[in-house]
Every structure is written in structure tokens, then in C-alpha cells.
Design a protein around this nucleic acid. Sequence first.
DNA 1: CTGAAAGCGCTTACAG
DNA 2: CTGAAAGCGCTTACAG
Lengths: 365, 365
Amino acid sequence: MPTDKDKHQASDQADGLQNTGAPAGEKTRTKLTINDIARLANVSKKTVSRVINESPRVREETRKKIKEIIAEHDFSPDLQARALAFRRSFLVAMIYDNPSPQYVVNMQRGILDTLEDTSFQLVVRPCDRNAPRFYEAMGSFIEQQRLFGAILPPSVSEDEKVADLLREANCPYVRIASVELDTPDRMIRTHDAEGARQAARHIAKLGHTRIGHIHGPDMFRSAHERQRGFEAGLAEFGLTLAPDMVEEGGYTFDSGVECARRLLGRPDRPTAIFAGNDEMALGVYQAAREVGVRVPYDITVVGFDDTPIASRISPTLTTVKLPIREMGKTAAAMLLADRDAPKRSEPISFTPELVIRESSAKPSR
Amino acid sequence: MPTDKDKHQASDQADGLQNTGAPAGEKTRTKLTINDIARLANVSKKTVSRVINESPRVREETRKKIKEIIAEHDFSPDLQARALAFRRSFLVAMIYDNPSPQYVVNMQRGILDTLEDTSFQLVVRPCDRNAPRFYEAMGSFIEQQRLFGAILPPSVSEDEKVADLLREANCPYVRIASVELDTPDRMIRTHDAEGARQAARHIAKLGHTRIGHIHGPDMFRSAHERQRGFEAGLAEFGLTLAPDMVEEGGYTFDSGVECARRLLGRPDRPTAIFAGNDEMALGVYQAAREVGVRVPYDITVVGFDDTPIASRISPTLTTVKLPIREMGKTAAAMLLADRDAPKRSEPISFTPELVIRESSAKPSR
DNA sequence: CTGAAAGCGCTTACAG
DNA sequence: CTGAAAGCGCTTACAG
């Protein structure tokens, strides 16, 4: 229910009072409505509406005339009114819990690439899946906003209950995830395992055999996919990841430092570490500096994400790169696509690529 | 005028066809309207409307009864309908061109701190003030969206034409800037000069005398404020900034590298550099590595912003910190505040603080 | 291919 | 303090 804060403005302030009228000199460039356009074009408003909505059921000549009048007067239909009549807003929401600012901003940019020059707007909704009333708050957000669509990057995308809420509210959505969680028209698949496999091959080819891994948070499917792919890549070279060479982090810098401290503190410390993301890889740099272990001479470090820091830090970080912005752009395009077009049978997918930089080298021991 | 992409859905597809009706078994938990609540409460819808809008003109008893019924049925008024009737949406836009993802995300979070649990949503609008049809696009965005309000961080906040567009459209806004550009109720002032002054004092006290500065892009007032404050701080110690010790960068990493190369390539190279922001300060690190100049032994580096990288890189970066999230939160609160409250006479302001880390030390030469 | 009527779910302006 | 009527600017359902 509405709260104090919801109050749009004190509408009743003048309730019962005389309308004092607008100041005489006020600029009143009244906005045109669909009625004005209809009158000017000598047609019914419904026909104008048909033109606005690109209905095929308008004679070409009529359409052209109306379009000219619309252009001439720089008319644009009222979004609030359209939304009310459609019972659907012009808002696309990005619902996310990814902690990396770069990831978030890149995806926002991608979505906006698609929404540019349309009447659709991007609404951002960061969230915490572990918050007390998470599903309740998400549910009322979805109910209330009548979103045109929602875009869900990991790990929100992996939450079945959120998808349920969206479906119940009849809200179209696109889930971006490293595993196929939904129907192809609602999925963008990222082959994280494949990226991790490339990282493993690279490390194996350099000659490393004592290899550690910093796993992402258990809640993220990507964390598992990355480890799975990494192990598969090692296996191609007859190598394995010892269970005690795996530490679980939280995709954050600090967790990376802690995990790396444990790994580097071992008597048989690894000569290479594959971190589940760049943030944690930077944590490895930090932990290495603390104990005087040099990257890459003493330890090879490989990350995942290719955040901008990766190419700005010294030594620059070898990492796995996913085209986040492009993914956001594609997700938004799926939402705006003709909803009556035939459904695809395979989800759109993106495969990451390995970016080799200075942090990986042959083992010195 | 609307484009193809604007098409909400092909509304006319079934024009003239029979309505096939909804599937029999479909869950039709029809959403309640204000009329239903009015009927249940035995009052007119107008009275319910008054309660929703917190009008004082309702008997306490009546209000209580209606509130109970609203809560019981978990009713929330339709936003689209309210927006149409109010002729104003429930959207707050953040319009920005700051290139730092961390800055952007922090401010978004701050704004959302305030909007949380209200019906207001945050719409993001990145832009490029040098784009060909910038003002045109911005104008139609503002006209079309009927925003509840807009928040403008630098350098968009410094654009008088954007403020004009907002005022013409009768859209409330808050400008965040390092100089007082508008009336106090529309301003959040950041004392960048004061932060830079602290940086100067710190550098001067360490004993540096040959000091360089990497200036931000000329388009940002903050770039000038920071240099001004920095020079003022040096002056307190009888020091000056030689004109040829100032290079103009673009608040980006790459521009920082280039400027630093020139500064460090001089025969009388400075022993300390104050960069206009952290991104450029990291560029100094890079340039220093290239020529074997060590931070902080050979060169002291001080930045501005306290981006997360500042505390993750080695050596950690001495920098000047502004509470970006808090600023966003305050800006949003100003927008939602009672618009009939008395106007303040002084703008709200934030003063940055110096964060001393490892990159600053006594000069060795 | 085109239109007159009704409706989307609210608020405003006026009246009592 | 409360309400009946009109309106916000569009689209839908029906008809021709």
C-alpha cells in the first residue's frame, strides 16, 4: 500500500478552494493530442492511432498524410495515456545483483544501445537475493510497474522464483546465464565453461602442474560452470585440480585476498591460480605482494571478465572476456522483437575468449 | 515522431476479428481498482483517492477504515492511471556523462536508497554532450517522459541549456556541481577546491617543491576547481604550480598515461603529481613503470575520487574522497521533498576528505 | 480501409 | 468532511 513517500503531491491542498488560474503571461504552448492530429488530417483519432501503432489496415495515402502532419507538428503521443490503455508501461527493467560496477554499467549501455531513439526507458533495479523480504518486494515491484520487459543477468537470472513472479505478472523477460534455464526465447546463454576451458589449456601449455582455483560464490551457477570447464580443459592435458587446491570466494576483492593467502601459504603452493573473476584475481595479486611472491615469475594468475582494471594494473592480467555490452544489447532487442514472430529453437549464445596478458608465464620451479 | 521500434505491439492485428476470449482455465485474479475499495468502504472513490494521496481533508475514522481495507486487499493504485491524471510520471532520471563506472553505480545506489519502498523508479540516461543532436534528443526525452524529476551530476549539471530544457518542461531537477550554478533548492554543491587544497597541503608538508598537475577536461568545471584549490593550498606554503608543469587530460586512464609521460620525460621532472582524478592517477603509475620511476620513492602521486581501484592497487593511492552515494541519496530526497516547503537559502554542500595511502612520500631528491 | 462509442484507473474542479 | 461529473490521452471491441 502507498506510503507517505508515495504521495505525488498534495492534490487536495486546494480542495474546495477557488482555482486561482494560471498567471496571465505563462507560456502555454499546449501540447497537441491525437485529437488535434485527427482533426488536421480529417480522419478519426482511431485512424491516427493505427498509424502510430504501425497497423497495416490503413490506406497508404492516408498513412502518408497523417505521418506528414505528425512530423510537421512534432507530435508524439502521450506515453502515460498509451501505457494506461495498453495496460503496460514503456519501461524495461534490469534486475541484478552482480557486484561489479563495470559489468553493471556495460550491460546498461548495451540495453540502452537498443532502446535509443525509442520511447522505451531503462529502469535499474539492484537487489540482494538474501534480503529478508526479497521476493515480496520483487513481486510488488513487478506487479506495480507493469513492465514492458525485464532483463536478468546472473545470479538473479538463476532464481526460479523471480522468473515465476515475472511469468505470473505476464511480464516478458530475458535471462542471461551460463546454463540453459528457460525456453530459448527467454534465454541468452553464455558458455562460461568454454572460456574456463581455454584458460586451462593456456595454463597447461605453459607447463604448470600444481594448479589452484578460487571458486565463485556457490549461489552463482557461473562459478560452477567455470570450475567445470577449467577441469575439463586440464583433463585434456592429463591434469587434475586437487580438491584442496580449490577455495571458495565471493567474487569480491577481499574474498580473493583471503583465498589466495590460504593457497599461497601452503608448502606445496600452486604455480598457477585460476580465479573465478577478475576481482578475485586482483586479490591474488595483493596476497602475493604480502608474501613476496611475484606475478608472474612465481605465480601465474588468470581471471575472468576482463574488467578495465585488468589492462591497467601491473602486470596486466590474463583473463577471459565476455562481450557484456553486446549481451545487453541483444537481450533488449529480444524484448522489443515482434512477439508474434516464430520462436527460435536454440537460445542465442555467447562464447568468451581468452585474453593473454602479462600475468601468465612458464613456471620457474 | 514514433518509429517502428516504438510500436508497443501490433494492436490492430485482430482488428475486425472476433475476440476469441481467454482460455477458460486462466488464472484471472483481477486486480482491484479504486472503485472496488470505495465500494467495500462505502465511500466515493474520491475519498479513497484522498486517502491515497494523504489529503488532510478526510475524517480520521474514515481514513483508518479505508487504510485497513487497502491493506487487507493489498491494493495499490495503478501507476499509469495516476501518472495520466497527474500529467507526471513516477520516474526520476539520472542524466550523466561521467565516464567512471564506479561513480555512476555509486550515485545510482544513492538515488535508489531514497526511492526504495516508494513507487518511484530510477531511469538512467547516459549521454554525450558533444553528440550531434544532443540537445534535440535531450529535449524530446524530457518532453516525452514527463519526469517527476531529474538528477544531474557533472558535467551535465554544468550545461545551462539542459537546465533550460528542464525548466521549460516544468521538470524539477537537482544539479550536482563544484560551483553554485543555480538556486539553492536545485543545487548540491561539492567543494572540490577544498579537497584539492588538502591534497596540496599534504604534498607541500612532505617537502615537495617541483610539483606537476594533470588537469581534467576543460569542459568540467571540477577540473578548474580542483586546480584552483590545489594552487591555493600550495600558496599557503609559498609554492606555485609552474604553467608548464600542468598537462590537460580527459579524466581517462589513457590521457593520464600520456600526460604523465610528458611530465616524467622532462629533465627537471616533478617529484609529485596531483592528478585531477584517480583514473588519470593510475595512468601516472603506468607511465612511471614504463620509465622505471618508482611510486612513491621517485614520484608521489595523488588522485581524486577514491575509486575502489585506489585501495586495491600497489602502492595504494592517496586520493581525495567525495561521498558519491550519499550525494545521490540527498539529491533524490530533494526531489521527493514537499515542494511547498520553504526554500532553503544556502545549497546543501559536501566537502571531500583526503585519504592518505602509500603513493605519497617525502621526496628522495 | 475507417469510425463512433466505451473504457483503461485514476484526479481535478466544482459543489454542497 | 464528502461526492457526482468530467476529464487526462490514448486503445479496444465492435460495426460497417
